[in-house]
Write a protein that binds this DNA or RNA. Structure first.
Lengths: 193, 193
DNA sequence: TCCATTTCTTGTCATTTGGCAAGCGCCGGC
DNA sequence: GCCGGCGCTTGCCAAATGACAAGAAATGGA
């Protein structure tokens, strides 16, 4: 597996020098996550900062009645970890599970933190990842408030069509904040147009 | 205005030494925001990292039809800024407006970034602020999906009763993701129990 | 104080969404 | 090949919420 994608990702996030990006990329360990296995289970501490080279994953939590609620979909080119658990060393309430066979590279909290403190440009990178995740969620929340379920569905379909190839519709439904029945009806109306 | 609250906040966020916290706190400038005035307007770059000593503010954006949507309420003891605009130096799409007369201390991005790079413990503090904000929003999103409007209302009333003393109900309604009419009806049913 | 504006409530009705259950089709294990 | 479970759809009805408009109450400015 060629680390080009990881190096490019580090550079886009703000790492200026080719050499530094390559050096850091070299510290990541290869990781494979077979389809259906868990990258993170609720109760564990998220300690792997994963750059996903290939595949996709789903994060989910449980509501008070025990139903699964999909909180995020991860795709190739993104970083995968549970923010609170990873940085505050607390037990995760979320699970992260592979929807397909996944491959990528991981680094531990300790290693990552070491690089943050040692390399200023890498701090900017790490912060940028956090900030992008945060504001992505802000956008999603705004959509949840201002858009109809159908609009949210169309947007997801337009922006992340790959998800629909791998995740069952009930996962997508709970991510959109609706039931699988409602999603089915929305899809029906949508296809008739 | 006494900086005790700011110093204590910096320490709780991870700054170990009293002296360092005091030194950093000393670099903040006093700031007053009269009721109804804007701390940040859409189109500007958020460049003040505000520790709010007293008062409360509301952040809001506009949906595609031009309606205001409240995205956050800020209260004393919290930090106020728009994440993406502040760290990525982009124009803010959100407005932040004082609901009451506010007082606190501010520091610019450049100053803050300088301290981040100079003081390791302060980096941990800054990251902790980001992580808490992020996971607070994750919780809110989970509630938006799994809870009814009435449950979200009760929770907000229980956890942030101060908001109800200062924000008009329509602001609270859009924060909860419902119309002001629906909120009014929910309050009616709730008061009859 | 008076007026204009904003806030909040309420009524009516339409729309969206959910809960529940049944049924179909597909896939994997035996 | 058969069976069982899962994923998806659909029908029926109830509940939640929205849209719109009217009116009462509170607020703020001149």
């Amino acid at each position: 597996m060629n680390r080009e994608s990881l190096i490019r990702f580090l550079q886009q996030g703000g790492l200026p020098m080719q050499g530094v990006a390559e050096e850091i990329a070299g510290q990541f360990a290869e990781k494979e996550i077979p389809k259906h296995t868990f990258f993170l289970q609720a109760g564990q501490i998220s300690d792997e900062y994963l750059f996903l080279h290939e595949g996709c994953l789903r994060a989910f939590a449980h509501d008070t009645e025990g139903n699964e609620v999909t909180t995020h979909f991860y795709q190739a080119g993104q970083v995968v970890f549970e923010v609170h658990s990873f940085f505050h060393r607390t037990r995760s309430r979320e699970n992260i599970q592979a929807l397909t066979d996944c491959r990528g590279w991981v680094i531990s909290f300790e290693q990552l933190n070491g690089f943050f403190h040692a390399i200023p440009a890498f701090r900017e990178f790490g912060r940028s990842v956090l900030v992008k995740g945060f504001s992505g969620l802000k956008d999603r929340m705004l959509g949840m408030i201002t858009e109809t379920a159908e609009e949210r569905y169309k947007k997801l379909l337009g922006q992340n069509p790959q998800i629909f190839q791998h995740a069952p519709l009930k996962h997508i439904a709970s991510y959109l904040g609706i039931t699988d029945s409602s999603l089915s009806r929305i899809r029906k109306e949508f296809s008739q147009k």
